[in-house]
C-alpha cells in the first residue's frame, strides 16, 4: 500500500496543488488538508508536506503565525513519532518558526529565515540555482536515494530565505553532520558562500536543513517545480540542461523525471 501524505493548506498557501502532484508522482497517495479541518484528523496520515505560499500573509514574520496553530501541534506530534515532515519555502519558514528545525531542543526556535542579502538588490528573487547534497546518503528524508555531493538545479522564489542563527550549537551540529543539509553550490558541486551563487546570502550556504533525526527537513528551493524534465529551462547550463536540450521534440523524454522528483521519491522510500 502506498503511504498517505497530507499537503497542509494554510490560509495563504499557494503551492499545494503542484506539491501534491509531485508527491503522487513520487509514489505517495495524498490529499490537500485544509486549515479548517479538525487537526486530530492529521494523525491518520503517514507524513506531512508544508507547501510554499504566504501562510497567514506572513504576518509578524514568514511562518510565525502558522507555526502556532493547532494544526502544527499535530504535525509536531507526528514528527516526534518519526513521521516525515517536509517544509518547502513558506513551509520551511513554518518549520523553523515552530522549532522543528533544527530541533536541537524541543520547542525552541533556534534559527530564522531572514530577508535575503543580495548585494545591491532588494526584494523577491526568482531564479534557478544549484543545490548540493552535503550530507551522507540517507541522513534525512530527502536524500535517501542520492549520494553525497549530488547536484540538482532547482528554482528559488522568495524574499526571506536566508538561514541565520546566533546559536553556536546549531553551527557545530551542522559542521559535525548531526544536522544534515542541502547547500547552494555551482553546477560542479563546489559550495558557494557568496552572492549570487548563494542567492540569498544564507548562513553556510544553507538551502535546506534537517532536524537531528533527519525526519524533518526545511528547504527553501522548490523541488515540486522541477519534477519533470520539461520543467527544466531549455538553456540551463550543465548536465540537466543538456538532457533537456536533447529531449527537444521527444514528448516521452520530456515527461521523464526532472531533478526535483528524487526528493519526493526519497520521502516515499523513508515510509517503506
Amino acid at each position: 500500500m502506498k503511504p498517505k501524505v497530507a499537503v497542509i493548506q494554510f490560509p495563504g498557501s499557494n503551492c499545494e496543488e503542484e506539491t501534491l502532484r509531485a508527491a503522487i508522482a513520487g509514489g505517495m497517495e495524498g490529499e490537500i488538508f485544509r486549515f479548517s479541518r479538525p487537526a486530530e484528523e492529521l494523525a491518520t496520515f503517514d507524513g506531512y508536506i508544508l507547501p510554499g505560499g504566504f501562510a497567514h500573509q506572513d504576518r509578524v514574520r514568514a511562518g510565525a503565525v502558522a507555526a502556532k496553530e493547532p494544526i502544527m501541534d499535530a504535525v509536531v506530534a507526528g514528527a516526534e513519532k518519526g513521521k516525515p515532515v517536509l517544509g518547502i519555502c513558506n513551509g520551511a519558514q513554518v518549520l523553523i518558526e515552530s522549532g522543528l528545525v533544527p530541533g536541537l531542543e524541543e520547542g525552541d526556535v533556534q534559527m530564522s529565515l531572514a530577508t535575503n542579502l543580495m548585494g545591491d538588490r532588494l526584494g523577491f528573487y526568482h531564479i534557478f540555482v544549484h543545490i548540493a547534497q552535503s550530507s551522507s546518503q540517507g541522513s534525512n528524508i530527502t536524500n535517501r536515494l542520492t549520494p553525497e555531493g549530488v547536484v540538482l538545479p532547482i528554482p528559488i522564489a522568495h524574499a526571506e530565505g536566508r538561514f541565520v542563527t546566533a546559536n553556536q550549537k546549531v553551527t557545530t551540529s551542522i559542521e559535525s553532520g548531526k544536522l544534515s543539509c542541502w547547500r547552494y553550490a555551482d553546477r560542479g558541486g563546489t559550495l558557494e558562500e557568496e552572492y549570487p551563487r548563494n542567492p540569498n546570502g544564507s548562513f553556510m550556504a544553507l538551502a535546506g536543513l534537517s532536524n537531528p533525526k533527519g525526519n524533518v527537513v526545511a528547504m527553501m528551493p522548490h523541488p515540486e517545480r522541477v519534477c519533470w524534465l520539461w520543467q527544466v529551462p531549455l538553456d540551463l547550463p550543465g548536465e540537466w540542461g543538456e538532457r533537456r536540450r536533447k529531449a527537444t521534440g521527444d514528448a516521452e523524454a520530456l515527461d521523464s523525471e526532472g531533478p526535483g522528483m528524487v526528493i519526493f521519491r526519497s520521502f516515499t522510500e523513508y515510509l517503506k
Binding site: N14, G52, F124, Q231
Partner: peptide, 15 residues
C-alpha cells in the same frame, strides 16, 4: 523579471 515568480503552479516551460 527575476522579481516575478514565473514557476509557481509547476506548469511553466519558459518563464
Amino acid at each position: 523579471f527575476s522579481h516575478y515568480d514565473s514557476t509557481v503552479q509547476g506548469c511553466t516551460i519558459l518563464g
